[in-house]
Design a binder for these strands. Sequence first.
DNA 1: AATGAATGAGCATTCATTCAT
DNA 2: AATGAATGAATGCTCATTCAT
Lengths: 194, 194, 194, 194
Amino acid sequence: MKLSERKTLKKKEQILMTAIAVVNKRGYDGATMEEIAAELLMTKGSLYYYFKNKGDLMYECHKFVLSDAMGALEMALNEEGTAEEILRRMISSHIDYAIEEKETNNLIIEPHRFFDEEQLGPVLQLRKKYSSYFDQVIEKGIASGEFQVDEPIFVRMMILGAMNWIQQWYRPDGRMTLEELKRNFEEYILKLLK
Amino acid sequence: MKLSERKTLKKKEQILMTAIAVVNKRGYDGATMEEIAAELLMTKGSLYYYFKNKGDLMYECHKFVLSDAMGALEMALNEEGTAEEILRRMISSHIDYAIEEKETNNLIIEPHRFFDEEQLGPVLQLRKKYSSYFDQVIEKGIASGEFQVDEPIFVRMMILGAMNWIQQWYRPDGRMTLEELKRNFEEYILKLLK
Amino acid sequence: MKLSERKTLKKKEQILMTAIAVVNKRGYDGATMEEIAAELLMTKGSLYYYFKNKGDLMYECHKFVLSDAMGALEMALNEEGTAEEILRRMISSHIDYAIEEKETNNLIIEPHRFFDEEQLGPVLQLRKKYSSYFDQVIEKGIASGEFQVDEPIFVRMMILGAMNWIQQWYRPDGRMTLEELKRNFEEYILKLLK
Amino acid sequence: MKLSERKTLKKKEQILMTAIAVVNKRGYDGATMEEIAAELLMTKGSLYYYFKNKGDLMYECHKFVLSDAMGALEMALNEEGTAEEILRRMISSHIDYAIEEKETNNLIIEPHRFFDEEQLGPVLQLRKKYSSYFDQVIEKGIASGEFQVDEPIFVRMMILGAMNWIQQWYRPDGRMTLEELKRNFEEYILKLLK
DNA sequence: AATGAATGAGCATTCATTCAT
DNA sequence: AATGAATGAATGCTCATTCAT
């Protein structure tokens, strides 16, 4: 049992990753169970063995990406360093995910449209938690005198917005390298906070 | 002739406005011709008298909103004042549209998914033009010594991103009034530029 | 009244000719009232002033072409000459129509599909009459000893079929000129009859 | 694997045969996926499991009939006998198909209207090949001195036209039996060739 | 665990037809 | 006599979902 369960989990993860890729390419509505299955060399029907329905699959995708990003962010948050140093790491981490997981993160954009009441709670909570990590650095910076902000929550929103917007304009093959991109964000976000 | 043409235009505009509302509620894929028609107390078929197909209707919606927003922004840009004063007006204008026209502006988010080659050009151009207005104030502020930015284009992207993100978190009935929202944006955006 | 009636007739004829052209290009189902009207610089609705409905219009088109062709054929039949001479003229006449009025003549092909009970009668009668002209020359030829056929009706069917098939393969810009085409038909049809 | 594939093929063939019947009754445009499905006691959607779209289904219908007819014709061509004997058999074969598969063969009539570029090629080729079988007997007859024709291609066109026209007038319950019909065609076609 | 097959609801789109003006 | 506008029925097609095997 344990073995087969573990096997199922592996498979589920595989499916999730593929589904995420498809959603990133086609968008939520554009992603069909058919295409996801095909990409996995399975048949449509088989997906339903692992996930109750499309909504469920999308929900798990979303949680998967979010959890992943959250793990990375948490790590960045918990390493040693000044608030500034920590924040720089967090910015870097967030941007990595923003660029890779375009559309899945975009599911974020209108969760109410895509998730039902039951799913919405956990998703919203994850997002809140994710955001709160940023609040924590900011608070830390304020406490240590590194940052000076009157409206920390508002500023955190601005920061996240600015970073999430990347997807709209950043092209990996454009003039700005990923490193420069991150440097710029660090620079200007710090300007906002100091 | 003039009269009937004008009437047709009126009707088209009516349809556009309703369509925009529906798209804002349901998203691009979720908005059906049926629902748009129903909202207008028309039948599906009648919509096709005014617009060639759904894509065309969506395209016009998008142009409509964008042009509108652009007009307002241009006005804000061309009134008297220091760069700072102008920018404050532009921020206010942009936020007004960002809040009202949620999803239609969100069509913006992945234009490549929704528009065909022919439509993409004009849309992209409009968006570019819209952005360029912000570039103009920033340049003006730099020229007059009001602002100090090394990466004006990058900063403009940040600013727009931060503002467009509003849709994700701002609730008109929440703690922050629209005025406070605007004030905050002005404040922090200026902090970014000075 | 007389004047206006005459005017109406003229208009009807105009419409018929345009409709015929459209049907020849698009086929029965492919021909839309819209396109016919557009070609006439009218609106769809106006067509209904002159014709009860699409079926009626098509019916009149068909009768128009058939009557026209019949007139020409009758003339060919009634001119002086031996059966052979007459037949040659009739062949020439028939081919002219077969080439020009492709699709309208093709309405012929499955009249039951396109016409209702009421319309079918006259159409079938016209066609029968048209065919009978050929029977007449053949009989005349037999009587005069020019032709020798055991199954005149059957042969007439063959002849008409062979000629109507032209539409499937004859290209005015191909190797065979219209004259050669006619010559060949005359030659071989006569071979059939002698 | 083999088994399920074979099953699918059987089903496809079943569908094709039903579709052919419907097309024969209603014509290309008149045949709806709905009706074809209903006739098969399936739902519309299921048809799309087997065929990509209506065009594809029609295309396969056409190929199916044509291939079938071609097989029979080829057999008639390759059996022993003088050119005359062979031709008689071919006429018989062709007439069998012309009578049974009315409309599907009529798809033939304006292939350009119904098939897209990709489909047109194979269809036209099949038709050409089919016609060429008749050319072959004719050439054989000329070579053996049985036939005497100056314009063999033209005559072949006449012959095919004459036979295809059957659909327009032949009624199985009419005066002429199928056998008489064939006999007559053989007789007069040979008259044309000698 | 997986699949092939089938389903049905839903959607965009077309078009003949109507009718008030 | 003509038109603009509206309608609704029909049609091809897609796709999430189900289920027997």
